[in-house]
């Protein structure tokens, strides 16, 4: 609904953004694909040669890759489980009448605004340290053996830290969704004498289905890329117990200087992320229509 003139202006107005985003997406991706087909080491510059899919073969037959893939899946799965289930419970709780709800809300949301390097180091040292950490002290008080988190259960430790960062996100979105549940619907259910549990399963949960999906998809996109938390706590170790795919690619490229191999890993990560992204984009697209 506009004139030719406005439409021309509109094209001119979107062009710069479209152009820079296109370049930002396509140039690195094309270069990564190209590198992934080369024998290319930063230690041996100038001696690049085309080797086809060898890097992929190498990467896909490397046990470290599968370890990283499983670590990625465990990390993503664990954080999703904690943040979504916890998020639903928290959202239900915060929807209850409560004095000082605004302040409680702020406290619950706060971890989301903490930069990843800070939360990782605070948890690792102040809370999870096997001797001087607060958790160890609490365990001793209760007469339990303190856990040496980063030696005994390093991936679980990282999962907990990342979950702490993402729980607020899930809570906030699910709380917004619960509050958008029609007040009259709640009153109608009350008039019908619906018991709280049935009310939750038949009315609240179906209403939350969509936001839950959105939370899962968006978190997955970000969780596939967890990096800083691993870098500053374990450096991928011990062994490769906490190496996920982004960290593996980083280590291959910038610690072992194998550009070709790392690029193949990067492309595999892109493919994984795209599987999730397709679902997410479709969902957002459907919402745009409405």
């Amino acid at each position: 609904m506009a004139t030719r003139q406005t439409r021309i202006l509109a094209h001119a107005a979107t062009a710069p953004s479209t152009l820079v985003l296109f370049l930002w997406m396509i140039v690195p991706l094309a270069m990564t694909i190209y590198f992934s087909l080369l024998r290319y080491s930063l230690l041996d510059p100038g001696n690049e040669s085309f080797i086809g899919l060898v890097n992929y073969e190498y990467f896909l037959s490397d046990p470290a890759f599968f370890a990283a893939l499983f670590n990625t899946l465990k990390l993503v799965g664990g954080v999703l489980l904690i943040s979504v289930v916890g998020g639903i419970l928290l959202a239900l709780l915060l929807d209850q009448p409560c004095w000082g709800r605004g302040i409680v809300r702020l406290m619950v949301i706060a971890p989301f605004f903490v930069m990843p390097t800070v939360s990782a180091l605070i948890w690792k040292n102040l809370l999870m340290h096997p001797v001087q950490g607060l958790f160890a002290w609490i365990a001793n008080l209760l007469g339990l053996q303190p856990i040496d988190w980063f030696a005994q259960a390093p991936l679980t430790a990282i999962t907990l830290i990342v979950a702490w960062q993402w729980l607020p996100f899930a809570t906030l979105i699910l709380l917004t969704a619960i509050q958008s549940l029609d007040e009259e619907q709640k009153e109608a259910a009350e008039m019908d004498g619906t018991p709280p549990l049935s009310f939750f399963f038949y009315i609240v949960l179906p209403h939350l289905a969509r936001p839950i999906t959105v939370v899962i998809l968006i978190e997955t996109i970000f969780l596939l890329n967890v990096f800083a938390e691993i870098l500053v706590t374990t450096g991928g170790g011990p062994g490769n117990l906490t190496t996920n795919i982004p960290f593996l690619v980083y280590a291959q490229a910038l610690l072992q200087f194998d550009v070709g191999g790392a690029s193949a890993g990067g492309i595999i990560a892109v493919i994984l992320a795209n599987i999730v992204a397709i679902f997410l984009v479709r969902m957002i697209g459907r919402n745009l229509e409405a």
């Binding site: 439409r7 953004s17 997406m25 140039v27 596939l224 490229a253 790392a262 990067g266 990560a269 999730v276």
Partner: peptide, 27 residues
């Protein structure tokens, strides 16, 4: 001044946000 392709453009822009950074790190 939306056109026929505005929605696709918008979604495409969002999808660039979903590219994992390790895919672009090396270049």
């Amino acid at each position: 001044a939306p056109g026929k392709r505005t929605k696709d453009l918008l979604l495409w822009m969002l999808s660039t946000k979903m590219m994992p950074p390790v895919g672009a790190l090396i270049p």
